[in-house]
């Protein structure tokens, strides 16, 4: 029985966990927390097809004949005759150690199943946090360079610019002349400036190309002494204001946003930019 659970039900249960997680995320519109929108349809279609197979498995597997020799080894391929053992170790190991190994495998399987349930179904979905910003170098040339080449930036309407667009322009080092008189309204999460966390924070977003694993943080620096009292790290805000020379001497950016208003907002439905 234990072998059968290992060889067949393990996969069916894990599939079911994955399918429930994907379908629930899709129905509640939260797939965007994990993957790029271009995969939504493919992911949902495959989850549904997988669901059909799981249904079929539930219908057929209980009635499937067990192996003729009564052994059903971990990988789960039937072998109708008794003289071709799939495992190999049955021949060499004593039955006691084989059974100990069986217990170990069962425990590992249980661990994987519990882990999958916790990660996919129990932990509420969330975006990445400042912990990952620290890890990945905010406004790394990598994340912003391609955006800088896009034609919309060279003559586009600045009112539509995203956090990513402004981050690219700042990164390119457009002079103060460019920023004079320009203002921006940006929504993102709050992450502190590493050099001057008292006075400067970034209104930041993650850029996602495929799934959250490749997320690159981009952000626009905002000068607001004592910001942390009102806007905790990782909370979402909408900042509007004009650009000015950075009054903070210890932080790196030359130009910052001087906010006319900073408003706490709810996390948007699509927290990442693409």
């Amino acid at each position: 029985m234990r072998d059968r659970i290992q060889s067949r039900w393990r996969g069916i249960v894990l599939s079911l966990i994955g399918i429930v997680a994907i379908v629930w995320l899709a129905v509640t519109g939260q797939l965007g927390l994990y993957i790029h929108p271009r995969y939504y349809e493919f992911t949902v279609v495959m989850a549904v097809l997988g669901g059909v197979m799981v249904l079929a498995a539930f219908a057929f597997v209980p009635g499937a004949a067990p192996d003729a020799d009564g052994h059903d080894h971990g990988d789960g391929h039937d072998h109708g005759d008794g003289h071709d053992h799939a495992d190999g170790h049955d021949h060499s190991a004593s039955s006691a150690s084989a059974s100990a190994r069986g217990v170990l495998w069962t425990a590992l399987t249980a661990l994987v199943v519990v882990g999958a349930v916790v990660a996919l179904l129990v932990v509420p979905p969330s975006t990445l946090t400042t912990a990952t910003v620290d890890q990945r170098d905010l406004n790394n040339a990598a994340a912003v360079s391609d955006a800088a080449d896009s034609p919309q930036l060279t003559g586009g309407d600045t009112a539509d610019f995203t956090v990513k667009d402004w981050a690219s322009i700042l990164r390119q080092g457009a002079g103060e002349k460019y920023f004079a008189g320009k203002s921006a309204t940006l929504t993102g999460f709050v992450t502190p400036d590493p050099a001057d966390p008292e006075n400067v924070f970034y209104v930041a977003r993650f850029v996602v190309t495929c799934c959250a694993v490749d997320a690159q943080p981009v952000g626009v620096p905002v000068y607001l002494p004592g910001w942390e009292a009102e806007h905790p790290v990782d909370s979402w805000v909408t900042v509007s204001g004009g650009f000015a020379t950075n009054p903070s001497t210890s932080s790196a950016p030359a130009i910052v946003l001087e906010p006319a208003s900073v408003q706490a907002v709810d996390q948007p439905a699509e927290p990442y930019v693409y």
Binding site: I22, M46, A119, A212, V213
Partner: peptide, 19 residues
Amino acid sequence: RDFVTLSTSVVIESLPFVF
């Protein structure tokens, strides 16, 4: 939290391809 988010995103991205 980020570990869970990152691992989950790999699973959700890959699982359809594995199916």
